[in-house]
C-alpha cells in the first residue's frame, strides 16, 4: 500500500510533480485510438490539457501517473475481498464493519469517503445504482460499466429492479426482497454475493474468479463452479 494523500471523490494525487516533465510521455506506449480520426471533442480536451500544463496547473507526468493509479481500480480487487470473506468469517465481519479497512488489509487503497458492503442473503438481494449521476467506487472497481451510467439503468433500477435484473438474465424469486441502494458522492457500495453451492473445495483465488464485475453491483450472480 502506498502513502499518497487522499482526496474525497474517486481517486488521489501522488503529489510528486518532479519537474521532469516529458510532454510526449503520455503518447506512449498504448494509443488504442491512434487509428481514430481526431474529433472536435478530443481536440477540445487536448487544447485544455495543453493550456493547463502551460499554466502549471498540472504536469504531463502527473496526468500519466494518475492514469496509472486509475488503472489499478478493478472488480478483481473486490472479488479478492469477497472470496476471502467467504473463507474467513472474521474477515467477513471486518469487511462489513469497515470495508475500507478490510480493503487496506489486502493492500487495496480506496479513496472513497465511505464504502459500505451489502451482503446478499437468502432473503435479500442488493443492487446498486446512482440515479443522479455516476457515483461508483472507482478506486476499488475501476470505471463503471456502461450500463451503470446509462440513463435507462439510472431511471429504472429504482422503479423496477426485479424486471431490470430479469433482463440481465438474473431471476430473483418473488420470495426474495430486492434492496436498491442509491449511491452518492460520499457513500458508495460493494455487493457481497452469496457463495455458490459446490465450492467447498475451492481456493480463495478460484472463488475470486467466480465473481464478476456485475456481481459486485448486484446485477449478476457468481458463476457456478466449473462454469465460464
Amino acid at each position: 500500500m502506498n502513502t499518497e494523500p487522499h482526496d474525497h471523490d474517486d481517486g488521489h494525487d501522488d503529489g510528486h510533480g518532479d519537474g521532469h516533465d516529458h510532454e510526449h510521455d503520455d503518447h506512449a506506449p498504448t494509443r488504442e485510438d491512434d487509428d481514430i480520426e481526431l474529433t472536435e471533442r478530443e481536440a477540445t480536451f487536448l487544447a485544455l490539457k495543453s493550456l493547463l500544463i502551460e499554466q502549471g496547473i498540472v504536469t504531463a507526468e502527473e496526468i500519466r501517473k494518475r492514469m496509472e493509479f486509475n488503472e489499478r481500480g478493478s472488480p478483481h480487487q473486490a472479488a479478492r475481498m469477497i472470496a476471502k470473506a467467504w473463507l474467513d468469517p472474521h474477515y467477513k465481519t471486518r469487511m462489513i464493519d469497515d470495508t475500507k479497512a478490510a480493503a487496506a488489509e489486502l493492500g487495496i487503497e480506496t479513496t472513497e469517503a465511505e464504502l459500505v458492503t451489502l451482503e446478499n442473503t437468502p432473503d435479500r438481494h442488493n443492487i446498486v445504482v446512482c440515479t443522479l449521476c455516476s457515483c461508483y467506487p472507482r478506486s476499488l472497481l475501476g470505471e463503471p460499466p456502461a450500463f451503470y451510467v446509462s440513463k435507462a439503468y439510472r431511471s429504472r433500477a429504482v422503479r423496477e429492479p426485479r424486471q431490470v435484473l430479469k433482463e440481465f438474465g438474473v431471476d430473483i424469486p418473488q420470495s426474495v426482497d430486492i434492496a436498491v441502494h442509491d449511491s452518492n458522492a460520499d457513500l458508495r457500495y460493494v455487493v457481497m454475493p452469496m457463495r455458490p453451492a459446490g465450492t467447498d473445495a475451492m481456493s480463495e483465488a478460484e472463488l475470486a474468479a467466480l465473481i464478476s464485475r456485475d456481481c459486485v453491483v448486484g446485477c449478476a450472480l457468481p458463476s457456478e463452479p466449473g462454469g465460464n
Binding site: D7, E62, R64, R66
Partner: peptide, 25 residues
C-alpha cells in the same frame, strides 16, 4: 438498459485523470 460495454478512448482516460488532478489540487 444498454448492455454493450464501452472501451474508453485514450484521451477519455487522460481527461478523467486530469479531472481527478483538478479535484485533488
Amino acid at each position: 438498459v444498454p448492455r454493450d460495454d464501452y472501451n474508453m478512448l485514450f484521451w477519455e482516460k487522460q481527461m478523467i485523470a486530469t479531472f481527478n488532478l483538478l479535484q485533488t489540487k
